[in-house]
Design a binder for these strands. Structure first.
Length: 288
DNA sequence: AGTGTATCCTGCAGGC
DNA sequence: TGCCTGCAGGATACAC
């Protein structure tokens, strides 16, 4: 998906028009993005007023009066678009759910969940369910509870490749494949390094790398490679600042060695073989 | 417990 | 032009 910076950008873009608005009507066009029958889903949203628009990891969280929440995981190609009344844009090509709004600072309009591949999921959670769901996710990487020392300790408990570890939302909430690769490059760590082999100084560099790349990407409204759009339909501009992701064969911006692409865990990993050397084999893990 | 694999979908780029 | 393959920002259920 959309990873943390993209979700954060969407949340910021939705806030003004959604807070205080009331959901007048819900149309479900593709019920496979829902976790419950369309009728029950619509029933639970209709006539509710939006109190807040928030983010948890890479999920958009819309909170209603009564404290129920709509949690939106955007999957690979999900978009949340707010179309204001009389919006001149052409209608979205792959709408899955449409909510007609009344009131709010922008006078209503339509909130559209748009998803070409339909890997995204929308669920309505009551306060208790929301707490349980949120507790299963790891710390917010931009929050105060995420510290280098804790990162280092958590890494030392896992043999999995550090790139895979970073993608596990139970470990850290919000990092996906793009920013995992970018953070590892900034930290000078090979993506396949077993998590427990990441030294304390390297974990500190990784901690800083994660926070820096996420913050800079938020400033640029995220990375639009293909599907991602802001709430207003715009594109994010962080793509031109990517140092390794999607850049196999291009020179590393730091040392000019060609960036390499490998595949493991069914995902591409991009890295600079010179800035991110693979740990010398032969000690703790002789042959993997 | 943690890791690898298959699966859910569609669209696009590139090779022939 | 058309067909085919590979690839894609994610998450989960399952077997081992």
């Amino acid at each position: 998906m959309p990873e943390l910076p993209e979700a954060e950008t969407i949340v910021r873009g939705l806030r003004r028009g959604l807070i205080g608005a009331r959901i007048a009507r819900v149309d479900v066009l593709h019920d496979d993005v829902l976790t419950e029958p369309a009728l029950a889903f619509a029933e639970r949203l209709q006539r509710r007023t939006i109190d807040a628009v928030e983010r948890r990891g890479k999920n958009v969280v819309i909170r209603f009066d009564g404290d129920a929440r709509l949690v939106v995981n955007l999957g690979m190609s999900g978009r949340l678009l707010h179309r204001e009344p009389d919006d001149p844009h052409p209608p979205p090509t792959h709408p899955a759910v449409r909510c007609r709004l009344e009131g709010g600072a922008l006078g209503g309009g339509t909130l559209v969940y748009h998803d070409v591949r339909r890997f995204g999921r929308l669920s309505v959670l009551e306060p208790e369910q929301f707490r349980a769901w949120s507790n299963r996710l790891g710390p917010e990487p931009l929050g105060r509870r995420f510290r280098a020392r804790e990162l280092s300790e958590a890494l030392s408990a896992s043999v999995s490749p550090v790139r895979s570890w970073l993608l596990d939302q139970r470990k850290i909430a919000g990092v996906g494949n793009i920013y995992a690769n970018e953070a590892l490059h900034r930290a000078g760590i090979h993506p396949r390094t077993p998590a427990m082999h990441v030294s304390a100084p390297a974990a500190t560099r990784l901690h800083r790398g994660i926070r820096r790349v996420l913050r800079e990407a938020i400033r640029r409204q995220g990375t639009t490679l293909r599907d991602y759009r802001t709430a207003g339909g715009g594109e994010g501009s962080f793509g031109s600042l990517l140092r390794v992701y999607g850049r196999a064969g291009e020179p590393c911006p730091r040392c000019h060695s060609p960036v390499e692409r490998i595949v493991f865990g069914d995902r591409s990993a991009f890295f600079c073989p010179s800035c991110q050397p693979e740990a010398a084999p032969g000690r703790a893990f002789p042959d993997r």
